[in-house]
Design a protein around this nucleic acid. Structure first.
Length: 591
RNA sequence: GCCGAGGUAGCUCAAUGGCAGAGCAAUGGUUUUGUAAACCAUAGGUUGGAGGUCCGACUCCUCUCCUCGGCUCCA
């Protein structure tokens, strides 16, 4: 069973990879002198990078259909793909006009160089490929987009023109994929944020600076109450610190140097230099530092939901996932080295509890982000501390069965971390919760406590974000629930719809009763048809619509319509209130 | 920041060098409605902004702002 599945993956991998080569053939045919980059198979398709001549030219969307058409013609010719092995010297000669290929050859240690050839096209490649192009379905691929991409992913290198393609084994799979993408676009938080009136970007305020409407703000605050309640159970205390600081703070923490280009700088009228804070940790260290600490006080756990400001590169801001002004739910524990592991486990448990309440636990992947072992100078802190931190996180991952995947070079400035990754509506990975160990920052700020022996010692700092950025978290849940947020989080939980004029008073009295029970309710007493009010209520993703008319008034009931489920019949208001109070209290997720 | 595609009414979109338009939303009226869009009318625009070409620019060119898809980055 598993074997056949693997075989299937390989087969589609070969098709994708071979399509990439075929595309390069056609591009070479249409754009003589083109320099070839790399062209691998990827999830759902393939790409190939090209450097067109003359410099500065690129593909147009029209080129894509021409290339695609020609690729189909080539497939029909049933061209065989052949593997060849040549020596380094031969390879250098063969690719003498292909600087990027020569660059790749330089990196290969082996003297035997693998090539794949079909027709006249030869590429430096380990394979594998299809044997003949007849294995490639002609109608199950599509060239989709043109993008710039740096050679070998390094922004210091030249930018090549990349063509992305989708490819599947059957036409139906391709069509299904396109359909899913189309559906996914409908749950894009940027679209739903507008439709549901949650947030807005003003050209006057600027990009990356979301303005939250009353509904959006309500959700943010409700999330905050929720995450703080869980953290409080685990001993976190709320602190609040200013958004500004003298830059000196970041000179000590190391952020000023490392993130110099991403700091918003503010100069006072009297010439004093401040920065808008990009992180909260250094501020919180200063609360710790405000007095002498004893080992008996530790762990000390602070949490704070507040704004941070990062001057992200312009091309990187977008929607709520990357903004200049971020609301971050940030927390730090100061503890003894012996306490680190249990503190981290506690944090993972908080994350688990919080995400379980959204039905999101299990929808994630965990990365153990460690340093770039070749470049320790990029980080602060001592090597032995880093070794220990990485070991602790690995143990936590093993003991808590997190299955963390090691990611080299992804660590924070001051320490390694466990990052919890989720996917957005379009399948792009976003990092939300994180737990990070930090031996370095307490040393830099000279934070100490008096240990059992009566001697000063540096505490360890554990950074954690549960909800992370409210903006990102909101984007995640909007997309996950397609806007139909859980009842407890819905800005309007119940809307009462009177059938006609003579039912309006009854509707308003229902609202009063609901509000008396702390249920967020409103009545639609405007002169629209019932059908229209229901339609709008459904589109606004209001969890419950209560329809009241003659029947309901006579029987002192309400007609319930549940979001996405339609008419559920009539019951008494008190029974309804009882039911939804349970749903709110248990934070049930209804699907 | 880099490569590419875009920006027309609050929203979704039309008008390819020759009078800027539709549906929804808004406003006023009529209608009082039984489970996903009642009807009529009115108003709504320096076509993102600035400059240029042209008798004439939403349309062509330059710059700029913003949005989207990638790349890079993400404390």
């Amino acid at each position: 069973m598993i074997k056949t599945k693997k075989k299937k993956i390989d087969k589609i991998g070969n098709i994708r990879h071979s399509l990439s080569h075929l595309m390069a053939t056609v591009v070479q045919e249409f754009f003589p002198g083109v320099k070839l980059g790399m062209g691998p198979a990827i999830e759902n398709g393939f790409y190939y990078d090209f450097d067109l001549v003359p410099k500065g030219t690129s593909f147009t969307p029209q080129d894509l259909s021409k290339i695609e058409k020609r690729m189909r013609e080539l497939i029909k010719q049933n061209i065989p793909f052949n593997k060849r092995i040549i020596t380094r010297t031969e390879a250098k000669e063969l690719f003498k006009n292909q600087p990027y290929k020569l660059d790749l050859i330089k990196e290969l240690r082996d003297n035997k160089i693998n090539l794949y050839q079909h027709g006249n096209f030869v590429d430096l490649c380990l394979g594998p490929h299809v044997k003949k192009t007849e294995e490639i379905p002609q109608d199950a691929f599509k060239l989709t987009k043109i993008a710039g991409a740096y050679w070998k992913g390094d922004e210091k290198n030249p930018m090549l023109s990349r063509i992305y393609g989708l490819a599947f084994e059957t036409k139906k799979e391709l069509e299904d994929y396109l359909k899913i993408q189309e559906e996914a676009e409908k749950r894009d938080h940027r679209k739903l944020g507008k439709d549901l009136d949650l947030f807005y970007f003003s050209e006057l305020v600027g990009p990356g600076l979301p303005l939250f409407t009353p509904k959006g703000t309500f959700i943010k605050e409700e999330l905050q109450k929720n995450v703080e309640a869980i953290c409080r159970e685990y001993g976190f205390e709320k602190v609040s610190t200013p958004h500004l600081t003298k830059i000196d703070l970041y000179e000590i923490s190391g952020h000023a140097k490392k993130f110099s280009d991403e700091l918003f700088r503010v100069t006072s009228p009297r010439g004093h230099e401040f920065v808008l804070r990009p992180v909260q940790c250094p501020h919180q260290t200063q609360i710790y530092a405000s007095k002498i600490r004893s080992y008996k006080e530790l762990p000390i756990r602070y949490m704070e939901s507040s704004n941070q400001y990062r001057a992200e590169k312009t091309g990187e801001v977008g929607g709520l996932n990357r903004v200049y002004a971020i609301t971050v739910e940030d927390g730090h524990t100061f503890c003894t080295p012996e306490q680190v592991k249990s503190e981290i486990k506690a944090m993972v448990n908080i994350i688990k509890k919080f995400y379980t309440s959204f039905d999101l636990w299990g929808k994630h992947k965990v990365f153990l982000s460690v340093r770039d072992y070749k470049h320790h100078e990029k980080y602060i802190g001592e090597k032995k501390d880093w070794d220990l931190c990485e070991k602790i996180l690995q143990e936590v991952s093993d003991e808590m069965k997190l299955n963390a995947e090691k990611k080299e070079g992804e660590a924070a400035l001051y320490g390694p971390k466990l990052d919890f990754m989720f996917k957005d509506a379009l399948g792009r990975e976003i990092q939300i919760p994180t737990v990070q160990i930090d031996f370095a920052t307490p040393k830099r700020f000279n934070l100490t406590y008096i240990n059992k022996e009566g001697k000063e010692q540096n505490p360890v700092m554990v950074h954690r974000a549960i909800l992370g950025s409210y903006e990102r978290f909101l984007a995640l849940i909007i997309e996950y629930f397609a806007g139909a947020l859980p009842l407890w989080l819905s800005p309007v939980q119940v809307q009462v719809i009177p059938i006609g004029e003579r039912h309006k008073k009854y509707a308003q009295s229902m609202v009063k009763e609901l509000e008396a029970e702390n249920i967020r309710a409103s009545a639609r007493i405007d002169n629209e048809t019932v059908g229209k009010k229901i339609r709008e209520g459904e589109m606004q993703k209001i969890p419950y619509l209560l329809i009241v008319g003659d029947r309901e008034m006579k029987n002192e009931t309400i007609g319930i319509r549940e979001r996405g489920k339609g008419d559920l019949g009539a019951i008494g208001l008190s029974d309804f209130i009882e039911q939804i109070k349970i749903e709110i209290k248990d934070k049930k997720i209804k699907k």
